[in-house]
């Protein structure tokens, strides 16, 4: 295979990536265009570049994560950055050091990129106000998970050739999902038609004001859709009566071939992972190589994160040059 072409001269106006909120359609296209380039690079034997050589990236995870953290780690390493992973148990935070103490401590080590996941909505925004490096939100509470929405968009664009005009159903535990919020914002920004399908207890009030239509029945919601995005049922965030049982949830809202039959014949199935098989998705559907894009999403994740790290660092270079001059 031939080497990918030169890295496109793309720029993002943002200093941080805190959410999809605030990104223009052009910004999103910029990230996806560069991501396409990195998809090609990642399929080569030599995946390493020197784009971020000398840069330090700290992955600061206040919530446990396997796939997102390793995806960011690989992305940074393939771009040549020094990557440090820091997992902070929230219990040790509560014992003394506050979130901002931790952030300021890390900031004093002069990282260039800080990738942060935190269990509280808005925590990453708060942190970004106090440090002088680029901050990437790797998921904050129930608020946003922008790189997930971007990798979903990349997957869709590569499979369907476009995002605009597609019908997308986001199904399941919308209430607890930062993935749903970021995807709603991104898909609406890019001109898709977005529906959410969930029981009323997992449909956050006022969600229709974010530009979606709400369905409480899978077959109504999935009718003629091009994309089915399943969400993980976040049992760990549920205190109180949201659903009677996972069995009943699967019966009503789990994606199986029967419910899928009302969607477009070539409808693409997506899931941000990790999956609860037999809870929100049938195993056979999840593994259907003709319909499921779930593993492709993981591949796109690394490329999108490389693109984001690369683009934000391009702005850092400018700032430093300006500082010297």
């Amino acid at each position: 295979m031939s080497a990918p072409g030169p890295i496109p001269e793309l720029r993002l106006p943002q200093e941080h990536l805190l959410g999809i909120q605030g990104l223009s359609p052009a910004d999103i296209s910029t990230i996806l265009d560069l991501s396409d380039h990195y998809v090609e690079l990642n399929r080569q034997a030599d995946k390493k570049t020197a784009t971020l050589r000398g840069r330090t990236q700290i992955n600061l995870f206040f919530e446990p994560s396997t796939r997102t953290q390793s995806s960011f780690e690989l992305a940074g390493k393939r771009l040549g950055a020094d990557v440090v992973n820091m997992s902070v148990k929230s219990s040790s935070i509560k014992k003394g050091e506050t979130l901002l103490d931790t952030a300021m401590t890390l900031n004093a080590m002069h990282p260039d990129l800080l990738v942060v996941r935190h269990g509280s909505s808005g925590a990453v925004n708060l942190l970004a106000q106090k440090v002088n490096c680029s901050v990437i939100n790797a998921g904050d509470g129930r608020h946003e998970h922008p790189t997930q929405a971007l990798l979903d968009a990349l997957t869709i664009r590569r499979r369907k050739g476009r995002i605009e005009g597609l019908k997308v159903a986001i199904c399941g535990d919308v209430a607890h999902s930062r993935v749903a919020r970021s995807n709603i914002l991104l898909l609406n920004t890019m001109g898709a038609e977005v529906r959410v399908v969930a029981p009323p207890t997992l449909t956050p009030p006022g969600i229709e004001r974010m530009g979606v239509t709400v369905h409480h029945n899978m077959k109504d919601g999935l009718k003629d859709v091009d994309i089915v995005m399943m969400l993980r049922l976040q049992l760990e965030r549920m205190q109180g009566a949201f659903i009677p049982s996972t069995r009943e949830f699967y019966h009503m809202f789990g994606l199986d071939y029967d419910k899928l039959s009302v969607a477009q014949p070539d409808a693409l199935i997506m899931h941000p992972g990790p999956m609860n098989r037999g809870v929100e998705i049938d195993s056979a559907v999840a593994d259907d190589i003709h319909r499921s894009a779930i593993l492709e999403q993981v591949e796109m994740g690394v490329a999108v994160r490389m693109a984001v790290l690369d683009l934000l660092t391009r702005n850092l270079s400018d700032a430093e040059t300006a500082g010297v001059a």
């Binding site: 909505s121 808005g122 608020h143 946003e144 930062r178 956050p204 009030p205 006022g206 974010m210």
Partner: peptide
């Protein structure tokens, strides 16, 4: 306050 604002911010809300 429960509603659009709380949903956008992803914050627990009171109706």
């Amino acid at each position: 306050n429960e509603g659009e604002m709380a949903t956008r911010l992803g914050l627990p809300a009171s109706p």
